[in-house]
Design a protein around this nucleic acid. Sequence first.
DNA 1: GACTTATCGTTCGCCTCACTAACGTTAGGG
DNA 2: CCCTAACGTTAGTGAGGCGAACGATAAGTC
Lengths: 157, 157
Amino acid sequence: MPERDRHARADPAAVPPRLRSLASRLLGRGALHADRISNARLTAAGATRWQYAVLVTLRDAGPASQAALSDRTGIHRSDMVAVLAALTAAGQVQRLPDPDDRRRNIVTLTEAGATRLDLLDRLVDEAQDELLAPLSPTERLDLVRLLQRLDHHHATR
Amino acid sequence: MPERDRHARADPAAVPPRLRSLASRLLGRGALHADRISNARLTAAGATRWQYAVLVTLRDAGPASQAALSDRTGIHRSDMVAVLAALTAAGQVQRLPDPDDRRRNIVTLTEAGATRLDLLDRLVDEAQDELLAPLSPTERLDLVRLLQRLDHHHATR
DNA sequence: GACTTATCGTTCGCCTCACTAACGTTAGGG
DNA sequence: CCCTAACGTTAGTGAGGCGAACGATAAGTC
Protein backbone atom coordinates (compact mmCIF):
# COMPACT_ATOMS: atom_id res chain seq x y z
CA MET A 1 0.00 0.00 0.00
CA PRO A 2 1.87 3.05 -1.22
CA GLU A 3 -0.29 5.63 0.50
CA ARG A 4 1.82 7.65 2.85
CA ASP A 5 1.18 10.53 5.13
CA ARG A 6 -1.86 12.25 3.72
CA HIS A 7 -0.78 15.72 4.84
CA ALA A 8 0.26 18.47 2.53
CA ARG A 9 3.95 18.25 3.34
CA ALA A 10 5.97 19.10 0.30
CA ASP A 11 7.81 16.27 -1.35
CA PRO A 12 11.36 17.55 -0.78
CA ALA A 13 12.75 16.13 -3.98
CA ALA A 14 9.99 17.66 -6.08
CA VAL A 15 10.34 21.27 -4.92
CA PRO A 16 11.87 23.43 -7.67
CA PRO A 17 15.42 24.61 -6.91
CA ARG A 18 14.36 28.22 -7.05
CA LEU A 19 11.95 27.73 -4.19
CA ARG A 20 14.29 25.45 -2.33
CA SER A 21 16.97 28.13 -2.19
CA LEU A 22 14.83 31.06 -1.07
CA ALA A 23 15.90 32.20 2.38
CA SER A 24 12.41 33.48 3.11
CA ARG A 25 10.88 30.10 2.32
CA LEU A 26 13.49 28.24 4.31
CA LEU A 27 12.91 30.45 7.30
CA GLY A 28 9.19 29.85 7.09
CA ARG A 29 9.62 26.11 6.90
CA GLY A 30 12.20 26.13 9.65
CA ALA A 31 9.80 28.05 11.87
CA LEU A 32 7.11 25.49 11.11
CA HIS A 33 9.33 22.59 12.12
CA ALA A 34 10.48 24.47 15.20
CA ASP A 35 6.93 25.27 16.28
CA ARG A 36 5.79 21.71 15.81
CA ILE A 37 8.66 20.32 17.85
CA SER A 38 8.47 22.88 20.63
CA ASN A 39 4.70 22.81 20.89
CA ALA A 40 4.61 19.05 21.00
CA ARG A 41 6.70 19.04 24.15
CA LEU A 42 5.19 22.11 25.76
CA THR A 43 1.56 21.22 25.21
CA ALA A 44 2.25 17.73 26.53
CA ALA A 45 3.28 19.51 29.72
CA GLY A 46 0.28 21.82 29.54
CA ALA A 47 2.27 24.93 28.65
CA THR A 48 2.68 27.23 25.67
CA ARG A 49 5.63 29.05 24.17
CA TRP A 50 4.26 32.35 25.33
CA GLN A 51 3.91 31.16 28.87
CA TYR A 52 7.46 29.89 28.77
CA ALA A 53 8.74 33.19 27.43
CA VAL A 54 7.03 35.10 30.22
CA LEU A 55 8.35 32.79 32.93
CA VAL A 56 11.89 33.04 31.59
CA THR A 57 11.65 36.80 31.42
CA LEU A 58 10.42 37.09 34.97
CA ARG A 59 13.24 34.91 36.23
CA ASP A 60 15.98 36.60 34.23
CA ALA A 61 14.83 40.21 34.41
CA GLY A 62 12.80 40.19 37.59
CA PRO A 63 9.23 41.34 38.31
CA ALA A 64 7.75 43.64 35.70
CA SER A 65 4.60 45.30 34.49
CA GLN A 66 2.65 43.71 31.66
CA ALA A 67 3.85 46.40 29.29
CA ALA A 68 7.46 45.66 30.19
CA LEU A 69 6.83 41.98 29.66
CA SER A 70 5.44 42.76 26.24
CA ASP A 71 8.56 44.69 25.33
CA ARG A 72 10.84 41.96 26.61
CA THR A 73 9.10 38.99 25.04
CA GLY A 74 7.68 40.49 21.87
CA ILE A 75 4.25 39.22 22.90
CA HIS A 76 1.56 41.72 22.05
CA ARG A 77 -0.09 43.59 24.93
CA SER A 78 -3.49 42.25 23.95
CA ASP A 79 -2.26 38.66 23.98
CA MET A 80 -0.39 39.06 27.24
CA VAL A 81 -3.66 39.22 29.14
CA ALA A 82 -4.63 35.61 28.46
CA VAL A 83 -1.08 34.37 29.05
CA LEU A 84 -0.94 35.96 32.48
CA ALA A 85 -4.46 34.82 33.28
CA ALA A 86 -3.40 31.23 32.69
CA LEU A 87 -0.19 31.61 34.64
CA THR A 88 -1.88 33.23 37.63
CA ALA A 89 -4.63 30.63 37.57
CA ALA A 90 -1.91 27.99 37.74
CA GLY A 91 -0.24 29.81 40.61
CA GLN A 92 3.00 30.22 38.71
CA VAL A 93 2.81 33.97 38.72
CA GLN A 94 1.44 36.65 40.98
CA ARG A 95 -0.22 39.73 39.55
CA LEU A 96 -0.69 42.68 41.89
CA PRO A 97 -1.55 46.31 41.24
CA ASP A 98 1.44 48.62 41.50
CA PRO A 99 0.85 50.95 44.49
CA ASP A 100 3.09 53.60 42.90
CA ASP A 101 1.21 53.58 39.59
CA ARG A 102 -2.26 52.17 39.75
CA ARG A 103 -2.41 51.69 35.99
CA ARG A 104 0.21 48.99 36.25
CA ASN A 105 0.20 45.40 37.42
CA ILE A 106 3.38 44.04 38.88
CA VAL A 107 3.89 40.47 37.78
CA THR A 108 6.11 38.25 39.91
CA LEU A 109 7.35 34.70 39.56
CA THR A 110 6.15 32.41 42.37
CA GLU A 111 7.98 29.45 43.86
CA ALA A 112 5.72 27.13 41.92
CA GLY A 113 6.46 29.14 38.78
CA ALA A 114 10.20 28.81 39.27
CA THR A 115 9.93 25.07 39.77
CA ARG A 116 7.71 24.79 36.75
CA LEU A 117 10.18 26.83 34.73
CA ASP A 118 12.98 24.39 35.54
CA LEU A 119 10.96 21.63 33.95
CA LEU A 120 10.03 23.70 30.92
CA ASP A 121 13.67 24.68 30.47
CA ARG A 122 14.56 21.03 30.06
CA LEU A 123 11.73 20.46 27.60
CA VAL A 124 12.80 23.44 25.54
CA ASP A 125 16.40 22.25 25.54
CA GLU A 126 15.23 18.89 24.26
CA ALA A 127 13.24 20.62 21.56
CA GLN A 128 16.25 22.63 20.41
CA ASP A 129 18.21 19.44 20.26
CA GLU A 130 15.64 17.68 18.15
CA LEU A 131 15.30 20.71 15.92
CA LEU A 132 19.02 21.07 15.34
CA ALA A 133 19.71 17.35 15.24
CA PRO A 134 21.23 17.31 11.74
CA LEU A 135 23.77 20.01 12.61
CA SER A 136 27.07 19.74 14.42
CA PRO A 137 27.67 21.83 17.55
CA THR A 138 29.69 24.32 15.53
CA GLU A 139 27.03 24.55 12.86
CA ARG A 140 24.34 25.08 15.47
CA LEU A 141 26.28 28.00 16.84
CA ASP A 142 26.82 29.38 13.36
CA LEU A 143 23.13 29.17 12.60
CA VAL A 144 22.09 30.81 15.83
CA ARG A 145 24.55 33.64 15.40
CA LEU A 146 23.49 34.28 11.81
CA LEU A 147 19.85 34.31 12.84
CA GLN A 148 20.59 36.63 15.74
CA ARG A 149 22.24 39.13 13.43
CA LEU A 150 19.29 38.89 11.08
CA ASP A 151 16.81 39.46 13.86
CA HIS A 152 18.77 42.27 15.40
CA HIS A 153 19.00 44.04 12.08
CA HIS A 154 15.30 43.89 11.32
CA ALA A 155 14.17 44.45 14.89
CA THR A 156 16.01 47.76 15.01
CA ARG A 157 15.27 49.02 11.53
CA MET B 1 6.39 63.65 20.57
CA PRO B 2 8.22 60.62 21.86
CA GLU B 3 5.66 58.07 20.74
CA ARG B 4 7.25 55.60 18.44
CA ASP B 5 6.01 52.67 16.54
CA ARG B 6 2.99 51.48 18.48
CA HIS B 7 3.43 47.85 17.51
CA ALA B 8 4.42 45.08 19.86
CA ARG B 9 7.91 44.61 18.43
CA ALA B 10 10.22 43.35 21.11
CA ASP B 11 12.84 45.73 22.39
CA PRO B 12 15.92 43.79 21.26
CA ALA B 13 18.10 44.89 24.16
CA ALA B 14 15.51 43.89 26.73
CA VAL B 15 14.95 40.29 25.59
CA PRO B 16 16.48 37.84 28.07
CA PRO B 17 19.56 36.00 26.73
CA ARG B 18 17.89 32.65 27.14
CA LEU B 19 15.14 33.64 24.73
CA ARG B 20 17.52 35.45 22.44
CA SER B 21 19.56 32.30 21.89
CA LEU B 22 16.74 29.85 21.21
CA ALA B 23 16.93 28.57 17.67
CA SER B 24 13.19 27.99 17.58
CA ARG B 25 12.50 31.58 18.59
CA LEU B 26 15.02 32.95 16.13
CA LEU B 27 13.51 30.93 13.32
CA GLY B 28 10.08 32.21 14.17
CA ARG B 29 11.22 35.80 14.21
CA GLY B 30 13.21 35.34 11.05
CA ALA B 31 10.14 33.95 9.34
CA LEU B 32 8.16 36.97 10.52
CA HIS B 33 10.67 39.40 9.06
CA ALA B 34 10.86 37.39 5.87
CA ASP B 35 7.09 37.30 5.47
CA ARG B 36 6.76 41.01 6.07
CA ILE B 37 9.44 41.87 3.54
CA SER B 38 8.27 39.44 0.88
CA ASN B 39 4.60 40.22 1.29
CA ALA B 40 5.19 43.94 1.13
CA ARG B 41 6.67 43.62 -2.34
CA LEU B 42 4.35 40.93 -3.63
CA THR B 43 1.10 42.48 -2.45
CA ALA B 44 2.20 45.80 -3.90
CA ALA B 45 2.32 43.95 -7.21
CA GLY B 46 -1.00 42.24 -6.51
CA ALA B 47 0.49 38.81 -5.92
CA THR B 48 0.94 36.40 -3.04
CA ARG B 49 3.71 34.02 -2.03
CA TRP B 50 1.54 31.06 -2.92
CA GLN B 51 0.84 32.38 -6.37
CA TYR B 52 4.54 32.95 -6.89
CA ALA B 53 5.38 29.44 -5.74
CA VAL B 54 2.88 27.96 -8.18
CA LEU B 55 4.13 30.03 -11.09
CA VAL B 56 7.74 29.08 -10.38
CA THR B 57 6.82 25.43 -10.12
CA LEU B 58 4.96 25.47 -13.41
CA ARG B 59 7.89 27.10 -15.16
CA ASP B 60 10.56 24.87 -13.65
CA ALA B 61 8.75 21.55 -13.57
CA GLY B 62 6.24 22.02 -16.38
CA PRO B 63 2.46 21.60 -16.46
CA ALA B 64 1.04 19.58 -13.61
CA SER B 65 -2.13 18.52 -11.86
CA GLN B 66 -3.22 20.37 -8.76
CA ALA B 67 -2.15 17.45 -6.60
CA ALA B 68 1.32 17.52 -8.10
CA LEU B 69 1.49 21.26 -7.52
CA SER B 70 0.57 20.68 -3.90
CA ASP B 71 3.37 18.16 -3.49
CA ARG B 72 5.87 20.42 -5.16
CA THR B 73 5.01 23.64 -3.38
CA GLY B 74 3.88 22.38 0.01
CA ILE B 75 0.62 24.29 -0.42
CA HIS B 76 -2.33 22.33 0.90
CA ARG B 77 -4.74 20.87 -1.63
CA SER B 78 -7.59 22.80 -0.10
CA ASP B 79 -5.75 26.09 -0.41
CA MET B 80 -4.55 25.42 -3.93
CA VAL B 81 -8.07 25.93 -5.24
CA ALA B 82 -8.19 29.62 -4.46
CA VAL B 83 -4.63 30.20 -5.64
CA LEU B 84 -5.38 28.68 -9.03
CA ALA B 85 -8.70 30.47 -9.24
CA ALA B 86 -6.89 33.79 -8.87
CA LEU B 87 -4.17 32.85 -11.33
CA THR B 88 -6.64 31.65 -13.98
CA ALA B 89 -8.79 34.73 -13.47
CA ALA B 90 -5.68 36.81 -14.12
CA GLY B 91 -4.89 34.76 -17.22
CA GLN B 92 -1.51 33.71 -15.90
CA VAL B 93 -2.41 30.07 -15.83
CA GLN B 94 -4.63 27.74 -17.81
CA ARG B 95 -6.59 25.00 -16.07
CA LEU B 96 -7.98 22.27 -18.30
CA PRO B 97 -9.39 18.84 -17.49
CA ASP B 98 -6.96 16.01 -18.22
CA PRO B 99 -8.46 13.90 -21.04
CA ASP B 100 -6.51 10.85 -19.83
CA ASP B 101 -7.77 11.15 -16.25
CA ARG B 102 -10.88 13.16 -15.86
CA ARG B 103 -10.33 13.58 -12.13
CA ARG B 104 -7.35 15.76 -12.84
CA ASN B 105 -6.90 19.30 -14.04
CA ILE B 106 -3.80 20.08 -16.01
CA VAL B 107 -2.46 23.46 -15.05
CA THR B 108 -0.24 25.27 -17.54
CA LEU B 109 1.69 28.51 -17.43
CA THR B 110 0.49 31.04 -20.01
CA GLU B 111 2.55 33.63 -21.84
CA ALA B 112 1.15 36.28 -19.55
CA GLY B 113 2.02 34.12 -16.56
CA ALA B 114 5.62 33.73 -17.70
CA THR B 115 5.95 37.46 -18.19
CA ARG B 116 4.41 38.09 -14.85
CA LEU B 117 6.74 35.58 -13.25
CA ASP B 118 9.77 37.45 -14.57
CA LEU B 119 8.61 40.51 -12.68
CA LEU B 120 7.84 38.60 -9.51
CA ASP B 121 11.24 36.93 -9.69
CA ARG B 122 12.87 40.31 -9.48
CA LEU B 123 10.66 41.37 -6.58
CA VAL B 124 11.50 38.19 -4.71
CA ASP B 125 15.19 38.68 -5.37
CA GLU B 126 14.93 42.17 -3.95
CA ALA B 127 13.15 40.80 -0.92
CA GLN B 128 15.87 38.21 -0.30
CA ASP B 129 18.40 40.98 -0.55
CA GLU B 130 16.63 43.15 1.96
CA LEU B 131 16.11 40.19 4.25
CA LEU B 132 19.76 39.11 4.16
CA ALA B 133 21.13 42.64 4.08
CA PRO B 134 23.26 42.33 7.24
CA LEU B 135 25.02 39.21 5.96
CA SER B 136 27.94 38.88 3.59
CA PRO B 137 27.56 36.76 0.44
CA THR B 138 29.38 33.89 2.11
CA GLU B 139 27.26 34.13 5.22
CA ARG B 140 24.10 34.17 3.14
CA LEU B 141 25.17 30.96 1.51
CA ASP B 142 26.05 29.44 4.85
CA LEU B 143 22.66 30.34 6.26
CA VAL B 144 20.77 28.98 3.28
CA ARG B 145 22.68 25.72 3.33
CA LEU B 146 22.18 25.24 7.05
CA LEU B 147 18.47 25.92 6.69
CA GLN B 148 18.24 23.55 3.74
CA ARG B 149 19.76 20.75 5.77
CA LEU B 150 17.38 21.49 8.61
CA ASP B 151 14.37 21.45 6.31
CA HIS B 152 15.47 18.34 4.49
CA HIS B 153 15.95 16.51 7.75
CA HIS B 154 12.54 17.35 9.15
CA ALA B 155 10.70 17.10 5.85
CA THR B 156 11.83 13.51 5.42
CA ARG B 157 11.49 12.35 9.01
C1' DG C 1 -19.00 -6.86 -15.04
C1' DA C 2 -19.53 -5.81 -10.01
C1' DC C 3 -17.06 -4.49 -5.76
C1' DT C 4 -13.69 -2.25 -3.43
C1' DT C 5 -10.32 0.93 -2.71
C1' DA C 6 -7.80 5.06 -3.77
C1' DT C 7 -7.15 9.55 -5.80
C1' DC C 8 -8.63 14.26 -7.43
C1' DG C 9 -10.62 18.68 -6.88
C1' DT C 10 -13.54 21.16 -3.86
C1' DT C 11 -15.98 23.13 0.18
C1' DC C 12 -16.30 24.03 4.95
C1' DG C 13 -14.58 24.85 9.24
C1' DC C 14 -10.93 24.97 12.88
C1' DC C 15 -6.98 26.86 15.30
C1' DT C 16 -2.91 29.60 16.08
C1' DC C 17 -0.44 33.74 15.61
C1' DA C 18 0.39 38.58 15.05
C1' DC C 19 -1.96 42.59 15.01
C1' DT C 20 -5.55 46.85 15.11
C1' DA C 21 -9.06 49.49 17.26
C1' DA C 22 -11.32 51.13 20.91
C1' DC C 23 -12.30 52.07 25.80
C1' DG C 24 -12.03 53.16 30.74
C1' DT C 25 -8.56 54.16 34.08
C1' DT C 26 -4.64 56.50 35.86
C1' DA C 27 -0.36 59.72 35.57
C1' DG C 28 1.97 63.62 34.57
C1' DG C 29 3.39 67.95 32.20
C1' DG C 30 1.83 72.55 30.61
C1' DC D 1 -7.24 72.10 35.31
C1' DC D 2 -6.45 70.00 30.63
C1' DC D 3 -4.48 67.59 27.55
C1' DT D 4 -1.81 63.93 26.36
C1' DA D 5 -0.01 59.55 26.99
C1' DA D 6 0.50 55.07 29.02
C1' DC D 7 -1.73 50.96 31.13
C1' DG D 8 -4.54 46.79 31.01
C1' DT D 9 -8.46 44.82 28.72
C1' DT D 10 -11.87 43.29 25.22
C1' DA D 11 -13.19 42.38 20.65
C1' DG D 12 -12.34 41.60 16.12
C1' DT D 13 -9.36 40.84 11.79
C1' DG D 14 -6.72 38.26 8.44
C1' DA D 15 -3.39 35.11 6.93
C1' DG D 16 -1.42 30.65 7.24
C1' DG D 17 -1.55 25.77 7.91
C1' DC D 18 -4.31 22.33 8.59
C1' DG D 19 -8.44 18.17 8.92
C1' DA D 20 -12.88 16.21 7.41
C1' DA D 21 -15.93 15.09 4.22
C1' DC D 22 -17.97 14.60 -0.41
C1' DG D 23 -18.98 13.66 -5.36
C1' DA D 24 -16.65 12.18 -9.30
C1' DT D 25 -13.46 9.26 -11.46
C1' DA D 26 -9.85 5.56 -11.84
C1' DA D 27 -7.65 1.27 -10.90
C1' DG D 28 -7.24 -3.28 -8.91
C1' DT D 29 -9.63 -7.70 -7.59
C1' DC D 30 -12.67 -11.31 -7.67
